[in-house]
Write a protein that binds this DNA or RNA. Structure first.
Lengths: 211, 211, 211, 211
DNA sequence: AATGAATGAGTCTTCATTCAT
DNA sequence: TATGAATGAAGACTCATTCAT
């Protein structure tokens, strides 16, 4: 049975791959068309220009990404907050690992001051901030941390969660580690779990992995 | 006495600023020339093309950056290794803070699979890996960590050190934190110091800041 | 009873409107399709391409336009020639006023050296010349005018008849006069009537308007 | 002695010629570049896009055109107003005859509702209106005409002055008359002079041609 | 009768670079 | 050392049209 993959999806896949490797500005619509084996005109036709294609990628990523955070935030009412936090961490790592090309491109483009990117991402990032705050504040409970400290903790957590994917090629070449690998998530999760326990919750020993 | 700032330097400054904001591929040689108030032909003339300009930026960054690591590695023979590590961390944060535009652009371009960038950076990154390893292995001494663990620790440390600068504009807009600010380094250093003590050296309490 | 306006007519109306505003070359088939709320493919389907649509417009205009001239020429045998001429003038003004969009576009496109337009219009324009000549020669009767003079008179008459419509938007913006307005025809006819009497027939006073 | 005609001028000449024949929208930058034997990129380089080229043409035309009107308006204080009016007419005819390609293209593009064209021309056209009004009101002196009549007279005069040039190709093909011909101006001026005397000034006989 | 996907040619424009000066 | 003119290649995008449905 022949499965007809829609042109639109083929284009998105090719775009993610190339944006990831060469960056958005470094990739031409012709490159994408050639890789997707479609007519270049189709891209403007389907996505209303190259920009629209990038927007599509960004939205695709953030919608899924924030869903994982939201899930765990809404579970805070019923479950141990540190479990929720850790599960969120695990889910985000898994999601990024499964979509490592998309993740890399998103985090990189976000680091630009591009007008377009900011218009789309700024509200997502504010929401992300809100959700992380909820999770972390619930997890630490006590007043050991100042507000400013919490900001820094979140920034650190975010650093740890995104860097391996943003610098996927660095991990590969310098450390021979593959972020898209199933085992990477398991292994790397352990280290973040340690960091949460030791640095954030100030426990001496980590016990079990949720999920 | 009139100080004539060389055309060459003016160009580099303009380039760093624009590459930082728009990315390398998103910046045209004319943008740079206009910002530097020089003739576009000068850029090809001085740097043998746009690419040469990027190379210059990368080299500029890595030469300085690795010097700080080297300094501390060479001090390992004479001083407490954890002090060396922490001092290296502090120096790197300071350096990046003082050169936040350059830092951001370098770490972003490194995240691309661009042939050019890799040719220049790969040896620097291998050297960086070597130096971090030296510092960390000396600091932890005991055998609590496997080789694989050490890799992950370095990756984490690097994440913590670079992310705030790579995502300078995110910190600014979402958290109202300014990585180029003097106080940022002081503050942020504390958190990494904590992380080193708790997560890496597994001490319970950090006491003083080595500069 | 539901009146179904045919797709074909909808397209023509949209085309006249847009060709009029933006010119033939400045209007895309998609503009027309969007305005007419039909599928772009229909235009090629019904008119065998964009060109066919323009041809349709030109033919539509000239067939009607020349009919008015012909009517009056054929009445020359039975009525006062100056009445016929004036009635022709009046009819042409009315026709153009009622179809001011179409008129504007036709006279403009005729001013181009476009191969296509000329192929269609040249025979119409020769016929127009013949009819005007008949009317004017009959009206002036006497030999006061040389052949060359008559040419110029016709050119002048044609100028006076077409300009207000060709420059509809100029009249609107600069003079606040609306050529599609019923009163415009009445008023403007008076002035041309004066011109015919004074300049062409060299009468001192005109009295009544023949419709 | 070799005279180096500047690239810029070569482009303008080619543009006038082609815009004239094919219309602005119907002419591609490549057409112009080929005709002017320059690189297409030069056109965007010199005129900041195709639009800039059209603007240049429009400004070129109107600046010269209005100068003739202004000259005669400023002479109204010292000379017979009907002479001034007639001399203005003559000058405008001459100017258009000498620049018949440019004239045709300008009057045609003015008949479009194009945003760009209107932005540039609207102020020129208001000024033109003002100057014509001055000239004609001075010439007719008496109160025989209502304000509305004067509007119509100016519109008619303008029609007579511009039509032969706008429809240059019509005159050529249908009447074998060449508006760029020196004799055309002389001949055609006579007819407008007649019209001014008979229709506007209501004199019975014209006597001499000023200039 | 009517459509939506798809296409190849063509649009204007910008690019990095070269070269005579 | 520095410039401005000039260029060919490539950029994104729009075009009229075709074709299976």
């Amino acid at each position: 049975m022949k499965v007809k993959v829609s042109t639109k999806e083929t284009i998105i896949e090719a775009a993610i791959s190339l944006f990831n490797i060469q960056g958005y500005d470094g990739t031409s619509i012709r490159d994408i068309a050639k890789k997707a084996k479609v007519n270049p005109a189709n891209i403007s036709y389907y996505f209303e220009g190259k920009q629209g294609l990038l927007e599509k990628c960004l939205v695709l990523f953030f919608e899924a990404y924030l869903t994982y955070l939201e899930e765990e935030v809404s579970l805070l009412a019923y479950e141990r907050p540190d479990y929720c936090l850790k599960r969120a961490v695990y889910k985000i790592l898994s999601f990024q690992s499964n979509n490592h090309l998309l993740s890399r491109l998103v985090w990189r483009e976000v680091s630009l001051d591009s007008q377009i990117v900011r218009e789309i991402t700024s509200s997502y990032l504010m929401k992300e901030r809100f959700l992380y705050k909820k999770l972390i504040e619930a997890a630490i409970q006590e007043n050991t941390y100042s507000i400013s400290d919490i900001s820094f903790l979140i920034i650190q957590l975010k650093s740890l969660l995104t860097m391996p994917f943003l610098n996927g090629q660095y991990l590969r070449e310098v450390w021979n580690i593959f972020p898209q690998d199933r085992y990477f998530v398991e292994k790397y999760y352990q280290h973040i779990d340690d960091w949460i326990d030791a640095g954030l919750l100030q426990k001496t020993k980590m016990v079990n992995i949720p999920i």
